[in-house]
């Protein structure tokens, strides 16, 4: 696997134009949206002179293309600028929030993949009532919007039943240490993960089911049966192993959707991640932070795709890099 590094570099090179496109598009979109951050900073009826100096300080007095060039050259230097509102470097703001978001997204991804693949395989293997009910259920899961689902879950489990906290990542006012801290975070994690995972789980189920069914029609399955293997082995070792290739692709490519879902979920559950940061920043027109989050988001998606590419080679020896 010594040629893994050139492979990764090649892949990354392919992604550079994509990052540029992301920066350009978000820059234009963000600046074209109605609303002006200065008003939010100083209030709509401020002193003319004061507003002017504020705009100059933020660099908002220059024409759009000039601002873009300045921004781009700063980004290339690794400088994402300062938040208008929190007077902190954007990079620091975001990096502080990344672990919380990653914790949420990765946990949701892990459980939805694990459970989705299991249910999908069982649905494919068992034709009949079980398959139909599982498929219907997964269709249901695909069509529920996050925001709505999040609120229902919040009301049922936190407000009515009171078995889970209303939001946040840790219990306020307690400073747990060690294992207690971990347990507290897990306790807070359950509901947001549930919200975020359901769509993904339903979709993974659907894809896995289709993919396993397809694999079960292949010739090598007849060979496996001709060996007298138990059906479970035929399905898990032979069909599922081959079926996983498209499933993994889907899971990887779905990272973007999951990140968007995370924004909504974090807002509902006051989860201190990038999502709630983005939500606040959009509300308050904090341009540098919005742009910064988009750039980090695309980098996360790119890394996810890279991991998929590597996994792909692991799952399918025919395209393994040598």
């Amino acid at each position: 696997m010594s040629s893994l590094i050139p492979f990764i570099i090649k892949k990354l090179l392919q992604y550079i134009p994509m990052i540029f496109a992301v920066i350009i598009i978000t820059f234009i979109l963000v600046h074209m949206a109605p609303g002006d951050p200065t008003f939010i900073l100083v209030g709509e009826v401020g002193d003319e002179e004061f507003i002017k100096t504020a705009r100059a300080r933020l660099g908002l007095d220059k024409p759009l293309h000039e601002r873009f060039i300045i921004y781009l050259s700063n980004v290339l230097k690794g400088d994402l600028g300062y938040s208008y509102l929190r007077s902190e470097p954007v990079a620091k703001l975001i990096v502080d929030r990344i672990p919380a978001t990653l914790l949420l997204v990765l946990t949701a991804m892990f459980f939805s993949a694990l459970i989705g693949i299991m249910i999908g395989t069982i649905a494919a293997a068992r034709k009949g009532v079980l398959d139909i009910s599982l498929s219907t259920l997964s269709l249901f899961g695909i069509s529920i919007p996050y925001f709505w689902l999040g609120q229902i879950i919040l009301i049922v489990f936190a407000v009515r039943l009171g078995i889970f906290p209303l939001g946040g990542m840790v219990t306020v006012g307690r400073s747990y240490q060690g294992i207690d801290y971990v347990l507290d975070v897990i306790y807070h994690l359950v509901l947001p993960v549930m919200t975020l995972a359901i769509f993904n789980l339903a979709y993974t189920t659907k894809i896995t089911r289709g993919s396993v069914l397809e694999a079960l029609t292949q010739d090598y399955i007849v060979t496996a049966r001709s060996k007298g293997l138990p059906e479970s082995r035929v399905i898990f070792r032979h069909a599922l192993r081959n079926a996983l290739i498209p499933v993994v692709t889907y899971i990887g490519f779905n990272t973007g959707v999951l990140l968007v879902g995370a924004i909504l979920t974090e807002t509902v559950f006051a989860w201190p991640g990038m999502g709630s940061l983005l939500y606040d920043s959009i509300r308050l027109r904090d341009y540098p932070v919005i742009l910064g989050i988009f750039i980090y988001g695309s980098i996360i998606i790119i890394i996810a795709n890279l991991i998929v590419d590597l996994l792909y080679g692991l799952l399918d020896p025919r395209i393994r890099v040598r």
Binding site: Q218, D219, Y220, V222, T223, A224, S226, R237, H238, R241, N242, L315, D316, P317, R318
Partner: peptide, 16 residues
């Protein structure tokens, strides 16, 4: 009973 199939390309599991 053992079986040998026609096309060894498709009758062998490609990922094993």
């Amino acid at each position: 009973i053992g079986v040998v199939f026609q096309d060894p390309m498709t009758y062998l599991n490609p990922v094993m």
